[in-house]
Amino acid sequence: MSINELQDELIEEFAFFTDWMEKYELIIQLGKELPLIDEQFKTDDNIIRGCQSRVWLHPEFREGHMFFSADSDALITKGLVAMIVRVLSGHTPKEIVEADVYFIDKIGLRNHLSPTRSNGLLSMLKQMKLYAVAFQAQSLQH
């Protein structure tokens, strides 16, 4: 599936719920599906700035595609991280760099999450794109 198809799929899953409690249950549930970061990468260097809870993110580049693993010490944050990873993981650096990530707004998360959280989410997205740019540059050199 393309990045946009994955986003639309998430939007649809959330559209099913009107109650905030149910939405949060889903977010927490999604967190359980996050590909967990290997302990050796859980270092200060891999912590995303701008998150009040801690988020670790690790990128891998295999056969032209990027794969992310991550973790957080807070359950709701972990769910949010899992959603972004689900949308962007497995795509080429070019696709990730060019991706228009609209699902956060569409689900209403940007408004409904506290500003500090939301900023953390956005800085994580920025970091993933930065990794993509770096891998893109690397693969161009080869």
């Binding site: 949060y24 009040q52 809870s53 010490d73 807070a74 359950l75 709701i76 944050t77 506290s114 959280r117």
Partner: peptide
């Protein structure tokens, strides 16, 4: 053993303003 942010977030959703961190 819940993270304070998770608790704060869920309280906020119920109109309850606390500080976490």
């Amino acid at each position: 053993n819940f993270h304070p942010f998770d608790v704060g977030e869920i309280l906020d959703k119920q109109g309850i303003a606390v500080r976490t961190g």
